[in-house]
Design a protein around this nucleic acid. Structure first.
Length: 590
RNA sequence: GUGUCUGUAGCUCAGCUGGAUAGAGCAACGGCCUUCUAAGCCGUGGGUCGCAGGUUCGAAUCCUGUCAGACACACCA
């Protein structure tokens, strides 16, 4: 189906053309003065300069033309030259029917230009527990992925594990100090390494912070870690085996955590998967003259004309010859291009890494790793702050682990449920707490613009008042409850059909429903799930208003009642489809 | 120091390519449950859109300057 505003714009545009003005001035938007009208067009004002016509006269001429249209119930010109419109109930009914018949996509068309998209989000480091910093990448990335797929794009999602950098050297060095007798450290060892890893996930989680702290104080420890990193990268057998073991243990733990967040990846590749491409890439860059030495390191200049500030060169190898994040990110692009040949690679990463990606992208294009016609996109997100605007920390100032954050919000939600429904079965209350708290967390994050920092306020997130996840879910639960009751009372769902809205609140609801596809498209095109959040919040408001305004099940007029039920059903479908795209779900009751 | 981003109600934020009296939510105050889940709904108060200029019929939105804050500036990722 065409988008509602597109249909209206075309019709208004035709009237502009008939009045001798370019049809594109007929662009229709939602009204910002709902008391006056539902839709407006400012084209007459905008065209005044170019066509040297009195905007008011233009608006009146267009209104005159449109007054005969079945699409509009009312069209009038206002003061300086606004064109104000109301859609006819019959037009709305037809549009709703179109959405209603398409149970899969609710009338939303796929993009006319589907592309092959490769997404890089998540970005956890192996051996380091997930912390709040990983939340946004996962949550935003997952939503963007689902939106892009819904729009008809071919999307591959890669978690891109951090498993090839200094943190591996730190772990190896620390482990060597703790258990020096392990065969991994014996260079002359030629036998089979044990199948069992020499550590558990919780040991690993203890080793990394200890090593990290040590390397900051102890210069020699730091140097050992650097050396170990390089040896691991160069393929020292025992270290590679350790790296593999660390990976294996971490990945199964990470998968659990991401599953808990309802976040899924197609690929569980890591930085280390780029290793086979590194030496060839370096040689190629040298041979073609892109790379040169600078202060002992190997770099590629990426400055371009028009830069407002000097962009530091992209570093390919450190002065000790080891790889670093530029190296693996570039070499990773090699296999992504070779194996997947995407039209676009999209990175959902902390915005503080923007400069790094500018360097990488330029270098990749300059050296031919990525053809110039492909898109490399950086979607940077802001920081999660605590109250007071400083980055969220634990009470003792440490990094907030993601699983604790999730548990805390789940516990708080459970308490809330116990208070409001003391009779509910405890197991069910736990189930619901899980579903609702995840929605609270994800919606609380996604409703913000990705690029902006936001303040994490647990009380606000789990509140069901205002623009929150629980409020959205509560509204969905209401729709389900009505539909359940309708069926229980013997209502026949198969002969329910949308009706022309007859009152103010059902018309407002109906017209909001009609906007579904344009909002989804807007969210997808702008990489902004917050647009969809704002839409479903408005839809929930409209629905709740309608709900309080209307006797639905006890409506004496059978025809009207069927129309109301259709509205409820369509509301439910639109909301559930939307939250599915955002990456969470609703319970049956709450 | 250089660059990027942010500055809208007490708090947290929306405001699309400039358009009609700047919108929500929270908090405050006041109403609404014998009727489909009150985790809801309705209402009241609250703003010189950081500041100063400029562009024009018209600016929160565009331009310049200025103040304040956040972030980034090659061998961590």
């Amino acid at each position: 189906m065409k988008e509602l505003l597109e249909i209206l714009s075309e019709e208004v545009g035709a009237s502009f053309a008939a009045a001798g003005i370019d049809a594109e001035y007929g662009n229709v938007t939602l009204s910002n003065r709902p008391e006056l009208c539902e839709y407006q067009c400012n084209g007459a004002l905008a065209s005044a300069k170019k066509f040297h016509k009195n905007p008011m006269e233009v608006a009146e001429a267009v209104a005159e033309k449109l007054s005969a249209s079945d699409t509009f119930e009312e069209v009038f010109a206002a003061k300086p030259g606004f064109l104000n419109m109301k859609a006819s109930p019959e037009f709305i009914r037809k549009y709703l029917c179109g959405m209603y018949e398409d149970t899969e996509r609710l009338g939303a068309e796929r993009t006319a230009n589907p592309e092959k998209l490769f997404m890089d989000y998540g970005g956890p480091n192996v051996a380091k527990p997930l912390h709040v910093g990983h939340l946004r990448s996962a949550v935003i990335g997952e939503a963007v992925k689902r939106l892009a797929r819904f729009e008809g794009n071919d999307v591959t999602a890669d978690v891109h594990l951090g498993d090839f950098g200094l943190q591996m050297g730190l772990i190896i060095t620390e482990l060597k100090e703790r258990k020096p007798d392990l065969p991994y450290f014996d260079e002359s060892f030629a036998g089979e390494y044990p199948a069992e890893a020499p550590f558990t996930i919780s040991e690993l989680e203890d080793i990394y912070p200890a090593a990290s702290a040590k390397s900051k104080e102890d210069e020699s420890f730091h140097e050992k870690a650097l050396a170990a990193t390089k040896e691991m990268q160069e393929g020292r057998r025992g270290y590679r085996e350790l790296q593999r073991q660390i990976m294996e243990i971490s990945v199964s733990d990470l998968k659990k955590n991401y599953a808990r967040l309802n976040v899924n990846f197609d690929l569980w590749k890591g930085e280390s998967d780029a290793e086979p491409y590194i030496s060839g890439m370096v040689e190629d860059m040298k041979a073609k003259g892109f790379a040169h030495e600078s202060n002992g390191a190997l770099v590629v200049d990426v400055e371009e004309e028009g830069d407002k500030k000097t962009i530091p060169p992209c570093m390919i190898l450190k002065s000790d010859g080891a790889a670093l994040y530029d190296t693996t990110d570039l070499a990773t692009l090699i296999w992504r291009m070779k194996d997947y040949d995407p039209d676009e690679v999209l990175y959902v990463v902390d915005s503080r890494q923007e400069l790094h990606f500018i360097q990488c992208f330029r270098c990749a294009k300059k050296t031919g790793i990525v053809p110039v016609n492909k898109k490399l996109t950086f979607l940077g997100f802001g920081t999660v702050n605590g109250e007071g605007g400083k980055p969220l920390k634990t009470r003792d100032g440490g990094v907030m682990r993601l699983e604790y954050l999730i548990s805390d919000i789940e516990d708080a939600m459970f308490e809330k449920i116990r208070e409001s429904s003391p009779d509910m079965d405890e197991a069910e209350a736990h189930d619901i707490a899980k579903t609702v708290s995840l929605a609270a967390l994800k919606y609380g994050d996604l409703k913000n613009q990705p690029s902006k920092d936001y303040i994490f306020d647990m009380k606000k997130f789990i509140s069901s008042e205002g623009d929150t996840g629980p409020y959205i879910l509560y509204t969905i639960v209401r729709t389900k409850s009505i539909l359940r009751k309708f069926a229980e009372e013997g209502g026949d769902m198969t002969c329910v059909v949308p009706a022309a809205p007859s009152g103010a609140s059902d018309k407002a609801l109906a017209e909001r429903l009609c906007l579904f596809q344009s909002e989804v498209r807007g969210a997808c095109e702008n990489l902004s799930p917050n647009i969809l959040c704002a839409y479903i919040y408005a839809l929930c408001n409209d629905f709740n208003h309608f709900y309080h305004d209307t006797k639905i099940l006890s409506c004496p007029d059978e025809g009207k009642k069927k129309g109301y039920i259709a509205d409820v059903l369509l509301t439910q479908r639109v909301l559930e489809k939307s939250i599915d795209l955002l990456g969470f779900e609703a319970p049956e009751r709450m």
